[in-house]
């Protein structure tokens, strides 16, 4: 019984990692590649660690595998966010078929200020920005 659970978890984890690798190879630009690699890669590593925990059936091994899973779960989105942000600001070209890039018009890459695009319009609730101090970036 344990063998079956371990086998299923290992195969599922390896399949997710293979999907992540195929995605990173085939997809056209940086955000889509990150979309494939981050989520599916973290999921694959977590499945394999679950398989390890079920194979050994030991409390210490379970604690270690759980620590790895929690660590991957916390750090993988942070790393993806930081790389994606850096890639966007360094001017990575998006795919030709990209439909919408809402950040491009409303974000000032120099001051890192995000505007809603509705400042000063009648629907605006907040008053338009008067003067920005460089501290509150």
């Amino acid at each position: 019984m344990t063998d079956i659970i371990v086998s299923i978890l290992l195969i599922a984890g390896a399949a997710f990692m293979l999907l992540a690798a195929i995605g990173i190879l085939r997809l056209p630009d940086l955000p889509t590649r990150m979309h494939a690699s981050t989520k599916a890669g973290a999921m694959g590593a977590m499945f394999i660690m679950g398989g390890v925990a079920f194979f050994f059936l030991d409390s210490i091994v379970f604690a270690r595998a759980f620590a790895i899973v929690v660590f991957i779960l916390i750090t993988s989105p942070i790393a993806a966010h930081v790389i994606g942000r850096a890639g966007y600001f360094t001017g990575t070209t998006l795919w030709d078929g990209t439909v919408k890039d809402e950040l491009r018009e409303n974000y000032d890459a120099e001051t890192h200020k995000l505007s809603s695009g509705y400042e000063g319009s009648p629907e605006s609730v907040t008053p338009p920005p008067e003067s920005e101090s460089p501290e509150d970036r």
Binding site: G13, A14, M17, A20, A21, I24, S37, T38, G41, A42, G44, A45, I48, I68, I72, S76, A79, I83
Partner: peptide, 9 residues
């Protein structure tokens, strides 16, 4: 990063 994740697996 994906390579490191695969190596963890």
């Amino acid at each position: 990063e994906l390579v490191a994740s695969i190596v963890v697996g």
